[in-house]
Structure formats: C-alpha cells, structure tokens
C-alpha cells in the first residue's frame, strides 16, 4: 500500500532504518557471540560454520527465493534434496560411474520440479497444495525405497576419494562447496535481478494478472521456476550425501522451515518487502550464526530452539514494527 499522506520525516526515517534491522541484528549477534564465546570468532569455527551449516541451507533458501519471487511457495524442497541424494548414493553403490550418478542425482531432483510444474501450471493446483502433496508423496516414496527409512551408508574406503573430491577439495585455496554456493548465488542473482526472465518472474509475483496481460507466458515461466528451484535443491542433496557419506531418508525435510524463514527474513531488507538473493543470504547467516553461537555459549538443544525463535521474532518485530502496520 502506498502512503499518500504528506510524508512525515520521522516516520520515513524509521522506515528506512527498518530495512537495515536484520543487518543490524546480525552485526550485534556476531559481536555478542564474539565476546561471550571466545572460540566463536576463530578461523576454524567460522570455516566449519560456513561449510557445514551455511552452504547447503543457503542453496535451498536461494531456490526458495526464486519460487517466492514468482508468488508461489515450494514445500517440497526437502523432497528434491532427498531424491538427489538417494539417486546419487544408490547409483554409486550399484557401481555406476561418478559423473553419471551426479547427473542422475540432479536429474532426480529436476523430476520433482517438473512434477510440481505440471501440477501447478497444467492442473492449476495452488502451489501450496501441489507442493504439500508432493511432500507427502516424496516421504512415502523414500520410506518404500529404503524399507521404512533405513539409511544407505557408503562408508568404505572405495568411495572416500569421490566424496572428498566433492566436499573436501579446494580450488585456489577456497573449498569447493563454497565456490559452488558463490557460483549459484551469483547466477541466481543475475537471473532474478538482472535478466528479462527474472523481470518476468518478479512480475508474476507482484501482479499475476498484469503479467498475463503483458503477454508473459505465465505457465512456461512458472514451470521453469519450480524446475530450477528443484535442480538447485538437488545440488544440496549431492553435497549433503557427500558430507555424511550416506543417504539418510527424509533428511532434506529439515531445510524446509529454515529456508522459508531465511527467505522471508531476507525480504525485510527491501522497502517493498520483496525477496532477494542478498536478503536470503543474510537470513541464512542470521539463522546459522545464532545456532552455532548458542551452541558455543553452552545452551542445550532445547533452549537453542527457543533462542532462535525469540531472535527471529525480535528481528521481525523490529523490522515490521518500525515500519508501521504491514497491511
């Protein structure tokens, strides 16, 4: 809603500040943990934090950002992650060449995206219900394939070099997973914010009716959104299974709420409350840093959850509250 009344300087200034609330909170939290937990701001901790907690969640959250930009939501991100992980690990176990297994893994995730796309654009089911249905089906498929949820371990030495090449290797001194994240973040940033395709997607999210009138091929672009998102989640699936050297059924589900949270926390840095890649990355950092910091400070798992909830609540209250009523 546009504010048509005469602009009031203080209110405007508060609104401007509200866009930076989440960045401000991130800085305060990092500083707070740096003081409270001496081991927090060490190279080793930050390195592990980013490698183990940030990269995989960030990729899923970026996928969610594309979908949310188009006005939809994807509750089946965890299924895409798990399908990629399952195909990758099971094919490796069957003795298939690594490259083929990699492609099959990403391919399995793309299939999930394709099904979502068909449900949403052809059968015209709302994104929420379509992806919720796929989430249920995906969980079932995994239980059936894994005999009720038994993990598939590939811990023997034969596969160690493969996994190490994916997650432990470095290019120019930078770990490969970080490079993958950087490449994805930049690619999606360009796609979403600098390309015609991105403009169409954001038009779909802002004004679906107008987008249709403008001659944008709505079903085509919507389909691509869900397929690209699922493919990105597939990358996380490969990284995840290479890190834990196994396929653990339903392990992707854990990313869902964090990805939604990070994406929508990220919307608070934009004046129009739109999702963006940068905002999402800040959201991911906020969640990951808090979880890691609370652990180092010595809070147990239960209180960590309360702490994260309270923190997110406080950031949102600050961001939305300073801005005045949202709707």
């Amino acid at each position: 809603m546009l504010n048509l009344s005469t602009p009031m300087p203080i209110e405007e200034r508060l609104k401007a500040i509200s866009n930076y609330a989440v960045i401000f909170a991130l800085v305060v939290i990092v500083a707070g943990f740096a003081i409270a937990a001496p081991s927090f701001l060490t190279g080793a901790n930050l390195y592990n934090l980013i490698l183990n907690n940030v990269v995989m969640l960030a990729i899923v959250a970026i996928a969610m950002t594309i979908v949310v930009s188009s006005g939809g939501i994807d509750l089946s991100v965890g299924v895409s992650v798990d399908m990629a992980s399952m195909a990758f690990i099971m094919l490796l176990k069957a003795g298939v060449f690594v490259g083929t297994a990699l492609f099959a893994g990403i391919g399995a995730a793309l299939v999930v995206g394709l099904i979502n796309a068909i449900l949403i654009t052809r059968l015209r089911i709302s994104p929420f219900l379509a992806t919720l249905g796929i989430l249920f089906i995906g969980q079932s498929v995994q239980k059936i394939a894994s005999g009720g949820g038994k993990p598939v371990y590939l811990a023997n030495a034969k596969f160690a070099p493969t996994f190490n090449a994916i997650v432990k290797s470095e290019v120019l001194g930078i770990p490969t997973p970080m490079l993958i994240l950087a490449a994805i973040a930049i690619a999606v940033y360009v796609l979403l914010h600098k390309s015609v395709f991105g403009r169409y997607i954001r038009a779909l999210g802002a004004q679906p009716g107008v987008a249709w009138y403008s001659g944008i091929r709505v079903p085509f672009h919507t389909s691509l959104v869900y397929i690209i998102a699922a493919g990105l989640c597939g990358v996380t699936g490969i990284l995840l299974s290479s890190t834990v050297k196994s396929y653990v059924p339903l392990s992707g589900d854990g990313y869902l709420l964090d990805a939604i949270g990070a994406c929508f926390i990220g919307t608070t840095i934009s004046a129009q409350r739109r999702p963006s890649v940068l905002g999402t990355l800040i959201g991911v950092l906020l969640l990951a840093v808090t979880r890691n910091g609370l652990l180092l400070v010595g809070w147990n798992f239960y209180w960590q959850q309360v702490g994260i909830g309270l923190l997110v609540f406080a950031v949102l209250a600050l961001s939305f509250g300073l801005r005045g009523r949202g709707h």
Binding site: L257, G261, Q305, I308, G309, V312, F313, L316, F320, G326
Partner: peptide, 20 residues
C-alpha cells in the same frame, strides 16, 4: 500490532513454542 506476515510470525512462534 507489529504487522509481521502471518507465515513468518507464526514460524518464529512455532520455534519458540517447540523449544519450550
């Protein structure tokens, strides 16, 4: 009061409550 999106507000509260 705060005008937070319901999806986000209740997600944060969900975390708090599950932790409690």
């Amino acid at each position: 009061r705060l005008g937070i999106l319901p999806l986000l507000a209740t997600l944060a509260v969900m975390n708090i409550v599950a932790g409690l």
